[in-house]
Design a protein around this nucleic acid. Sequence first.
DNA 1: CGTGCCAGGTGCCAT
DNA 2: ATGGCACTTGGCACG
Lengths: 263, 263
Amino acid sequence: MLQKTNFFVYPNLTPKDSLFVIQNAVAKQSVLLIVGNCRVDYEGRASSKLDWGERLVMIKSDRSILIHRSTGYEPVNWQPPGCIIQTELVSGIDLKIRAIRSQPRETLEILFDELSLVTILNLVDKGAFSLYVSEEDIKKSIMLRPSLIEENFRCIIDEKMQPTGFIDIFGVDEEGNPVIIEIKRGTVRKEAVIQLRGYVEPLSKTNPKIRGIIAAPKLGKGIKPLLDSMNLEYKRINVKKCAEILKRSEGSKISDFFTKPKS
Amino acid sequence: MLQKTNFFVYPNLTPKDSLFVIQNAVAKQSVLLIVGNCRVDYEGRASSKLDWGERLVMIKSDRSILIHRSTGYEPVNWQPPGCIIQTELVSGIDLKIRAIRSQPRETLEILFDELSLVTILNLVDKGAFSLYVSEEDIKKSIMLRPSLIEENFRCIIDEKMQPTGFIDIFGVDEEGNPVIIEIKRGTVRKEAVIQLRGYVEPLSKTNPKIRGIIAAPKLGKGIKPLLDSMNLEYKRINVKKCAEILKRSEGSKISDFFTKPKS
DNA sequence: CGTGCCAGGTGCCAT
DNA sequence: ATGGCACTTGGCACG
């Protein structure tokens, strides 16, 4: 049976001995945790100095670096991903870790005079992360507050259209122009644009002033030009706002928020 | 000789055995690092789901909680300081950690089916952290860009005043009113207000339109009313902007940026 | 590459 | 508690 060892723990390393361990871990893109007594200097957009004390330094696979004290959600000092990590023995007894970022030019220097614990982690993590509200939640939110689309936008329920059921929201803008809204709960891809185009196209023959809007939290890369070329629009939806709107009016029925079309 | 053991490492704990260790560490306000295979659900202002994978969970002394993947400066999920940490054994084999925040109501649930490494840290950290530019830097910055004080503010060098040397900056505002500026590199305390008052007071007898402004990055608690009562003003100085301004015009002499007074 | 905008922003101090 | 504002904001998409 294979022993799974996805971590290595080095207690009480001397700074001298730590050099190879740390360099190696950084080179192998492991996650590196260094606990010890240190001093931190940051110079860049601003400057800061942190006197001696015990902290946890985390160097991640992407060469982001975080210095955490025992309290606070935010790291006391840091460097975003992609910085250059250098290690050096100072005066033969201290470990200096330097993290340099070039754009903007910023340097972070950590000087350890004692290392209580160095840990190397090889995290296997393919899990997908999704931040979301459902498409239905977004739909409800827009119904409840049509201004999420734009000022003076109104939702219309049209019996002739409802049975078809494929258009997410139908409404009219300030000028009275008909608007078809396609909702996506995630990032807008090409397919969604094509889909909306399919709804808008036929109707635009009878009403050339009809508008098509995609409402979603995110727009995919390169989608904006596509929308422009098809004369469609994008309205960013703030997922958090949707959650607030929904919570505030728990239990309301969607149908309550439609306006009957002018007849 | 006293052996300094500010950390405890528990490799390959079973979720069952971890319960006591974790609860104890949280109770003792240690910093807790938990590495293992987990799934994360967040529900609150937004919602998120993170599928199974190996991550590092950090619970700090102030009961802030951070879930870090192997990349990214930011934690994938988190809870700010002060949340309620609960632990629970699920189905007898999995460890559930729940972190609840009440304002706004948000819940974070981490389910571990395997713990590779649990570490408890007792960090001794009294080191002061200071983010700063020097008072001299701020002075230079204002000289270089007087609009840091307000639009159309001008710095004046007045030979009659210069020898005294205790006023940081003397200038005139848009209306031509004389302005005395007191600079503090840190938080404004009562003493600084008294100090400025001392400069402004005598001069206001000959020129009642004279203004006194304290320029500093921060205003101490309760200082604003004091300033108001003494008819003095506060202008917040952005330390980062100062750094930028200084960098841009490296090596310029202060005297270059004074305007000779109208004579 | 700089610019603009959003974020579960967070943190800090004001009312 | 609520609101306003700054942040070494970081991150992402766009020109």
